[in-house]
Amino acid sequence: MDVWASIILSVCAASTPLLIAATGELVVERSGVLNLGVEGMMIMGAVAAFATAQVTGNPYLGAVAAVIVGATFSLLFAFLTLTLVANQVATGLALTILGLGLSGMIGESFVGHPGVRMEALNIPVLSDIPVIGKIVFGQDLIFYLSIALLAGVAWFLFKTRAGLMLRSVGDSHNSAHALGIQVIKIRYMAILFGGGCAGLAGGHLSLVYVPQWVEGMTAGRGWIALALVVFASWRPGRLLVGAYLFGAVTIGQFHVQAIGVPIPAQFLTSLPYLATIVVLVLIARNRRLTMINTPAALGTSFVPDR
């Protein structure tokens, strides 16, 4: 039974960064903005978290730094796409390219250093409950945060007035503007939130998942988070399912490699990426499901005509 508990724990650790980044991007896309820079913001968060934790010795400060750096970095995207109405796809790519380069330069002196691990909370007594104790009460803070964040976003988007405004901006910025809703301001805030989430997701990678700095360590997770938002057809609940499905595929292929199944390791490593493609195809085939929830203004620029 202990083996299963540890496998579930590692699935949680693999899924948490995907879930956090995808939750942030979901809010961004619900406001009608497609930010393809998740990978770049994530890796900036990872390097910021690692460096801060190294210098201060405190992983929680590292996590805070990851959020701040991720959000600040996203501001660059927001300024270009919202204020200068640059193309969102191209600008998102630019953010990813810049993030990968900049993080490599910042992190160069940290390569090979052991990182500061954010330890599991291990709530006394409760985490000693057999089997479920470790899973429910014995994880790191960011894991609990990821669940809270998702619940918070689901509540915000569908139960609050501000959430309704954000969705209306994402569905028709012109109508929202005509109603006096501040389209640009709402989008700025959504992008900042998404950036903070992506940063925190990166922080989880370099503080919990593999507490060290490796150049390009996000390895496409930002892109998988983007795919998850499509997979979830922009519904927070399905995001949870999707993120854990991908976490399970990732961990599953590690275990298959460890057992020594005679499949080349490279094929197993490709599995999460292939799974993403398969899932995207399956979701896209179900047109009705996708069309209802896709923010209608997704990816289009807004210029107020007074």
Partner: peptide, 27 residues
């Protein structure tokens, strides 16, 4: 073909295929 047949987002699929190609050529 995935985009034209199923309406799959080509940005994500074409990017995922980069990782697959890197692994395949490595093998």
């Amino acid at each position: 073909i995935l985009k034209s047949r199923f309406g799959t987002n080509e940005i994500l699929t074409s990017l995922m295929l980069v990782y697959v190609a890197q692994q395949f050529v490595d093998w």
